[in-house]
Design a protein around this nucleic acid. Sequence first.
DNA 1: CCTTGTGTTCTCCG
DNA 2: CCGGAGAACACAAG
Length: 296
Amino acid sequence: MPELPEVETIVSDLRKKILAKKIADVEVRLPRIVAGDFSDFKKKLIGAKFKSIGRKGKYIFLEISSVFPAGHNTSSKKAYLLVHLKMTGQLVYKDKYGLVAGGHSDSTDPALVPNRWTRAIFYFSGQGCLFFNDLRTFGYLKIVGPDELGRILSKIGPDPVLEELDINALAQKIKARKTSIKAVLLDQKLLAGLGNIYVDELLFRSGIRPQTPAGRLSLPKIKRILENVNPLLISAIESRGTTFNNYVDGAGKSGSFSQKLQVYGRGGKKCRKCGSIILKTKVAGRGTHFCPRCQG
DNA sequence: CCTTGTGTTCTCCG
DNA sequence: CCGGAGAACACAAG
């Protein structure tokens, strides 16, 4: 599951590889993953370049710069390629297309692209391809203008890696919620970028049980959680993200933060801090892992 | 049956 | 009956 650290790793990888390369062609193998106007999709992309790549929370947006000849009317509004990877989406850049004969592979090895989960391919002039792979096809690609992009990004809360969080204001909001602290932290409208893995890890670091009603936590405890968010995400980015099932970086390689997970996916195993058995339950409809001793 | 991110819809409560 | 909150569902495939 790509969450903020994984998306950040992909974005920084792609910035080094695809910016200012002319898009020679776009192949869409599963039209369903293109949201919005399909004919507009190719029209806007082919012949253009990606001028910059941005991110907020788990949303990725690539600024499209047209490359019309001088004198051509380019006054039309800016366009962006908006990408959401949802649970199993990948964006993988390769210098060369087709490491597999026939351009089709059943291997889950992301080094072997395209494969049967490749949904779209961007071919750059000269050399280089960007593959959008998605096993479960929840992810999408969409051409959006500045207005729509702004509308989407304004619906989600601050990004704890890109912005300084207003801890006091956020703590007040959390205090007002009656649902579990885990459900609150998963809510992208409060804070953008946390998903199931990092919420479990964050609550372990903070010594708080995921099922605790948010409003029953003391303000100091809530602030402690919020102060832990940035360091946790930064350290995950330094490990290039968590590969648990499906995630790979912009070059198709795994992240190593999986080795540093304290609770996620460790149900039944010993807590690395106190030796207690990590419990697995369901909170907010999600698989939830916690240490009964370290987390109150 | 399980896994999960997000958008939508349903249900509950005051 | 309304608004808001929170829960449940839909989506998909292995």
